[in-house]
Design a protein around this nucleic acid. Structure first.
Lengths: 119, 119
DNA sequence: CTGGATCCCTCAGGATACTG
DNA sequence: CAGTATCCTGAGGGATCCAG
């Protein structure tokens, strides 16, 4: 319904952090950015191998979304077969730095025995 | 099915950042932590007013989850009517600091005209 | 090789009513 | 006041097949 959707939007509109998180919170997304940061620019198939378990559908969705968000570049070579390479943009890199901060705390908490509660 | 669940768990297990994000990525969660940080300890009803649009069900879920995660404390006074107060723990505070970092970048990107892509 | 198009199913989350 | 108990819907995401 529209009213509910509007509420959700209002929520996103009034909280910058949730807005930013909405980009990263989808499944595989954070890991995907991390993979691109660790291994440098990668092709579609390579990503699929580097992120085991992800389906082509979701991988495509994520890549399109992150591209639309300006977090990564898509470079297509008009060869046969086609070669498409994805790489982090400046903004994607900046986000990765933030997430490294999260990662440090996450690993420290891990070491302290912390676990996320079951959903 | 178990296999899919297992895959999800494996994904969470191998990526500390996603594991940490899994706590914060739920709707209202980031905003809720922010509210508690800005306004100090609050009671259930006050939170419901400070986070307009959230249902009692989801608010309860979030509070329980964050408590289980050790991010906030629940203090119950055995009065009639009951008074329950929620406050950030040390860990909750630490997480808030991280999220302030996200908030800075989020607001800067906003100022630069950035918007998250439509889901 | 890089996806697009479907089908299907689970589950997060909204609305509402009720209780100690 | 501070929740619990249901019911319900939509979106997220997996599996599979097809296409340029």
């Amino acid at each position: 319904m529209k009213a509910e959707r509007a509420l959700h939007e209002k929520n996103l509109n009034c909280c910058p952090v949730e807005r930013l998180l909405s980009v990263v919170s989808g499944q595989w997304t954070a890991y995907l950015l991390w993979v691109l940061h660790e291994n440098g620019p990668q092709r579609f198939g390579a990503l699929q191998r580097l992120v085991p378990g992800i389906s082509t559908k979701v991988l495509t969705e994520r890549l399109r979304m992150l591209e639309a968000a300006g977090l990564l570049d898509r470079e297509q070579a008009a060869t046969i077969p086609p070669q498409v390479t994805y790489s982090l943009t400046e903004r994607g890199l900046e986000l990765r730095v933030l997430m490294n901060g999260l990662g440090e705390v996450a690993r420290r908490w891990d070491a302290e025995g912390w676990r996320p509660p079951a959903r």
